[in-house]
Structures are given as C-alpha cells and as structure tokens.
C-alpha cells in the first residue's frame, strides 16, 4: 500500500547561536537579532524517515508547519529534501500557542488536507524542547502514538517501531493511522542537491490562514492555551573565574589542592 505521510516541521533559531541570545533589560523582550532560523534538527530526521518509507512503499509526503510567513524559506528547504507538498499555518491569531493549542492547529490542518496514514514528527524541538506536541497531536487524532522512536518500518499493513526506553528498548507494532516522534538515532537526514533545489518551485506550497481551517476560536493561540507565559529572565551563572597559572605540574598541584579544600579525599 502506498502511504500518505504527514511530517510536522518547526522552524527554530539555530542552536549554534544560543549563547548570543539575550534579554533586553528594559523591555524584558528576547533579543535574537541576527540569529538564523533553521529547521528543527529532529524534524529533519522525521522528513528522512518519511522519504525512506515513500521510496520503499510509494506514496506522498506532506509537510505541515505552524509559524510566521517567513517560514516559507524553511519549507522550501523541506521540499528540496524531497517532500511533495508543504502547508504553512500562519495567522496572527495562532500566535502564542502552547503545545495544547499547537497540536490542535496542526491536527486541523492535517485533517483539512485529507486523510493521512501516518504522521512523523521530531521528538523534541531545540528552542522550547517540550517533547509534548507529538503525543498531544496523537490524542487529538485519536490514534496510537509513540515517542522516542529510533527505528521504524511498514510491514503487513502496520508499523513496526523500535523506541528507546529509560532502560533498554521496546519494539511495538501499531495499526495505521498513527503518530510517531523520531529521535536523532533514527537516521542521517539527506542534504538536498542543486537539482533538488531547482525542483522546489514546481511543488505545491500553500499558506493556510485561520479562516481556511474551521478552527474553534477557543482552542487556538493564546486564548486556547491552558498555560500562560510569565516573566522571562537569563539565569546568572557567572562565577569568579580565577585563573590558575604556571607550568602544568604547578597547575596540577593547585587543582588537587582545591579538590581537597572542597572536601574531596585524594589517595
């Protein structure tokens, strides 16, 4: 059976630059100027997993994202990787959503574009890192869902999935439709070639506004989010940073001395 697979993609600030993120002391707003927005890294694993299933079993891969209009650039990259169609849910009223409202909106967008057999997502985002949206989307859809997926295949009309557990691994079988959240261990995402990038313009890409989606206004954006964001601050972790200098042996002695002073018993 050919599979229709949805993948969910979140554009996030590049984690290489996190040390440059600051909070304006006056406005208390986040300053992330000049930090590029990239596709969340585990979402690339999700795309790769979907593409491999399509290559083996046939079908289509559709990408969904809820983000501002600028995310079009990130979705082009997703199409370049080999995804067939991309949908961007972008509307002011969707802003400020927590995982509950985000998963609802993605659910409605996926429903709108027609039934899918499988949804593959990243296990966790880099910026917020809640690891909550996949399970919550699975609950909205009312279908079996698993997180921490490290291997997956489609066999005999269902999925056979391996997940990482706290102490070992678990193998499951799931009937479709289902939602799976994959980790970095799942695969090595491909890098699009120039040829792939040239094909992007021919692929369907659509922005979905709130009015296109039949949304319950009480379930979206800030209003639909059970959690509210309060103050933000940067933790001050700075310490005295005293330099230990000298030749390696002198430094070694100083370090051992500090260990003893801190209550570590040494030989």
């Amino acid at each position: 059976m050919a599979l229709t697979i949805a993948v969910c993609i979140k554009p996030v600030p590049d984690s290489e630059y996190y040390n440059k993120i600051t909070i304006d002391p006056v406005t208390k707003r986040l300053n992330r100027d000049g930090i590029p927005t990239v596709i969340n890294s585990m979402d690339k694993n999700a795309i790769e997993a979907a593409l491999r299933l399509r290559e083996k079993h046939g079908g289509r891969v559709l990408a969904f994202s809820m983000a501002p209009d600028t995310a079009i650039e990130n979705l082009k990259r997703v199409l370049a990787m080999g995804v067939d169609e991309a949908y961007l849910c972008s509307d002011r009223v969707l802003g400020g959503a927590d995982t509950w409202a985000t998963s609802y909106t993605l659910y409605k967008a996926i429903e709108k574009t027609g039934p899918v057999d499988l949804v593959i997502m990243g296990n966790q985002t880099e910026d917020g890192g809640t690891a909550q949206v996949p399970s919550q989307l699975g609950e909205w859809m009312g279908v079996p869902h698993l997180a921490n997926v490290i291997a997956l295949d489609y066999e005999d009309g269902g999925m056979v999935v391996k997940t990482k557990a706290d102490r070992g691994t678990i193998r499951y079988s799931l009937k479709l439709p289902a939602v799976l959240a994959v980790t970095r261990d799942c695969n090595e995402p491909r890098i699009p070639s120039v040829m792939d990038i040239l094909k992007v313009g021919k692929k369907p890409m659509r922005i979905l506004r709130a009015q296109d989606l039949d949304l319950n206004p009480d379930f979206i954006g800030i209003k639909g989010s059970p959690t509210q964001a309060g103050e933000i601050y940067s933790p001050d972790m700075s310490r005295k940073s005293e330099a230990l200098v000298g030749d390696p042996d002198e430094i070694a002695l100083r370090i051992l001395d500090e260990l003893r002073k801190a209550g570590i018993s040494i030989g």
């Binding site: 995982t99 509950w100 890192g129 919550q136 699975g138 921490n148 557990a165 706290d166 959690t227």
Partner: peptide, 23 residues
C-alpha cells in the same frame, strides 16, 4: 521528565484538557 514520563505526561494533559510545563 524521563523518556516514558515525556510520553505519558503530555498525553494525560490532553486527556484532562489542561496545561503542562515540560522539563
């Protein structure tokens, strides 16, 4: 916030229609 807690927590939050703060 173990691997299984990360599966169970958000699922329960959905079933109860409530919010959850992670990690």
């Amino acid at each position: 916030a173990s691997l299984s807690g990360e599966e169970i927590g958000p699922t329960v939050a959905m079933k109860l229609h409530t919010g959850m703060a992670a990690h």
